[in-house]
């Protein structure tokens, strides 16, 4: 799987892209407990206080969404274009 971060989350992660080679998580929520920020907290814990949107294969989803090898998973703050 490929994991992407954008905007303020990309800066917080100090990383724009991860190649996920650890155990394949069942769903997005499970992946979020395994992704760690530079300060050591999990993305799941970060998302308790910061608004995050999730896309799997370029489609907006929620945390219950199942994941498969080869998926592209993206995390980002609420969008502010226009």
């Amino acid at each position: 799987m490929k994991v992407l971060f954008f905007a303020s989350l990309r800066e917080t992660m100090a990383c724009s892209e991860l190649a996920w080679t650890s155990d394949q998580p069942d769903n997005v929520a499970s992946l979020m407990t395994q992704i760690l920020l530079p300060d050591g907290q999990s993305l799941a814990s970060y998302a308790e206080t910061e608004s995050l949107l999730i896309a799997v294969n370029q489609q907006m989803v929620d945390g219950d969404t199942a994941l498969n090898p080869g998926d592209e998973v993206a995390f980002f703050p609420p969008v502010t274009g226009g």
Partner: peptide, 11 residues
């Protein structure tokens, strides 16, 4: 819809 769904971010 663009304001809330299109994946752009402003700094």
């Amino acid at each position: 819809y663009l304001k809330t769904q299109a994946t752009f971010w402003k700094k």
